[in-house]
Design a binder for these strands. Structure first.
Lengths: 309, 309
DNA sequence: TCAAGCGATAACTCATCGTTATAAACTCGT
DNA sequence: ACGAGTTTATAACGATGAGTTATCGCTTGA
């Protein structure tokens, strides 16, 4: 019934004291104000403006509207400004979820980029394995998910519905074999999986374990998994102590390595792909887009370091 | 840029969780909501709603709008309600000015009527002589002026510009002669002015004094004005003591009389007209109209009482 | 008394905002 | 796996709102 434009007009009339000046101050023509007032009057069913001589004066009802206009317009401007800040990257919150081994290098680098470019944007970060982060994304509890997929497998658990997502590839993450420095194979250039059927194996996260089983199966044996832990520092420790060998993604090795552990490329080679996942809607949210871009840059700019002991 | 309708829509979406339900709750069709959101999004340049499956979810910017909507819409409703109250006679303030002798009977009766019918309407009342009340009306400091004009004269001072006013006649107010009970003429039915050239006269307000001079002039003499006072109770007292005679409007005699004073119709008859004056704009203000109506009713309903001692 | 200023009005244009009808996409139950 | 039932998106269209320019009438002040 009564809208912000009407209040703005009433306020201008109250401030300026005439239709003409009010029109001027609002950037309208004088008849626009005249008609606007008439519309307001027939909507409210009340006289809002007293026409006295060639001047105008607000009636009681008109003064009521002008008085309320201040608050309403201020609140409206505040809302507008807040949205504009989000649109203009001067504000905004991005909820990022990433799997643990990405949080060592990739994510911090991206967050630093965002913070440097858009200091006002708050990126909240939660570690989560891919199935969990994708579920959060689907549930609207997250804006960006950094996830990985081993060659030939899907992101998430496989039965996931990925149609709703927009997926950007960040980098290829080489899977390497970790073995003790004093292991006979430690001096070779490439580790041939098929020669490792008798080793004790140390498995990582559930999906990594699945990948290990798959690779070994293709290599002709079923691995003897002696330990399971999701903590890759622990994996390296176990390997260093000669308690087994393990498959470890290169990404982890960039931030964690162990003096007594050697890593080698494996044959047949295997890698996992690291992706950042969002939705087409969220991708168009400026702060989300900025963070996504930063992740892509961090991925390409990060040099690959292969610590070979 | 962003208006109340937009906020209302965002709020409804936030509350209802879907476009369809939001449309239902606002009495719109579903496409109306869909288009409204799209318009808002291209105006703000931001994604406001995440389309997820067949449901929707607000983005951060959308939540900002929905959050601000509460306050803005509440303030808007408050303004609307306040104006509606004025329009519906459930509120409002009327500033009434009336000349002193009207405040004895006419005005109290009218105010009682208003109060009985519309208890919420506050009528403020100020005594003022016609020129002053009309000036206040012109200056916007008054909504209704009760004024009088002697036969053949204007309201106000005569040089007044009456075009801007709307004038309603309330009643004819007979001018009577007041004289002491023991005055020789006290027993006659009609006082012949031309026989009173030798009397001492007591004059009232300036305009009444002018009228007195005019009447006497027509009757062939210039009155000997012994006293001047605007207090008609004083006039009656002076007359009662035999210090002079006076012309007194009937309206005053309805509320003030004196046992030792007799009043007679005069010849030639003279009367003043009592009017209520406002402007065409103010006349359409409900509370003003209600008060004006009450004044008219009070004027016609008030029986004429001629206390003849 | 005349020129200047102000509000009202008329006539017209255009964007907005609503509608209905229909398509496309998703969820869920069988 | 597939169809029923929702849900959003889109198209086409109409009514109304809201702006413009041009012009009139009135008030005012020199």
């Amino acid at each position: 019934m009564i809208d912000a434009a009407g209040l703005r007009v009433m306020r201008a009339i109250a401030d300026q004291g005439s239709f003409t000046l009010a029109a001027l101050s609002l950037g309208y023509s004088q008849p626009a104000i005249s008609q606007m007032v008439r519309r307001l009057e027939q909507r409210t069913g009340t006289v809002l403006v007293e026409r006295v001589g060639r001047n105008v004066r607000l009636t009681e009802a008109g003064q009521v509207l002008a008085r309320h206009a201040v608050g309403v317009l201020a609140a409206l401007d505040a809302a507008e400004e807040e949205v504009a800040a989000i649109a203009g990257l001067r504000a905004g919150r991005v909820r990022l979820m990433a799997f643990p081994s990405s949080s060592a290098t990739l994510v911090p680098r991206a967050l630093a980029l965002v913070k440097q470019r858009f200091p006002e944007i708050k990126v909240t970060f939660t570690e989560a394995e891919p199935p969990e982060s994708l579920a959060a994304l689907r549930a609207g509890e997250c804006d960006l998910a950094v996830a990985f997929a081993y060659e030939g497998t899907d992101l998430g658990r496989g039965e996931e519905d990925l149609d709703m997502f927009v997926i950007h590839k960040l980098l290829d993450d080489e899977v390497r074999l970790a073995l003790p420095r004093n292991h006979p194979m430690a001096t070779t250039k490439v580790a041939d999986l098929s020669l490792l059927g008798d080793e004790s194996w140390i498995a990582g996260c559930p999906r990594c374990r699945g990948h290990l089983l798959q690779l070994c199966h293709k290599a002709g044996f079923t691995p003897n998994v002696a330990f399971e832990t999701e903590d890759y520092v622990a994996v390296l420790g176990l390997v260093a102590e000669g308690l087994g060998v393990a498959l470890i993604p290169d990404l982890i090795l960039r931030s964690a390595n162990h003096p007594d552990v050697v890593t080698l490329p494996i044959s047949p080679a295997s890698r996992r792909e690291v992706h950042v996942v969002t939705t087409s809607d969220l991708q168009r949210v400026p702060a989300v887009k900025a963070t996504l871009d930063a992740l892509c840059e961090a991925a390409t700019a990060t040099p690959r370091v292969f610590p070979r002991g």
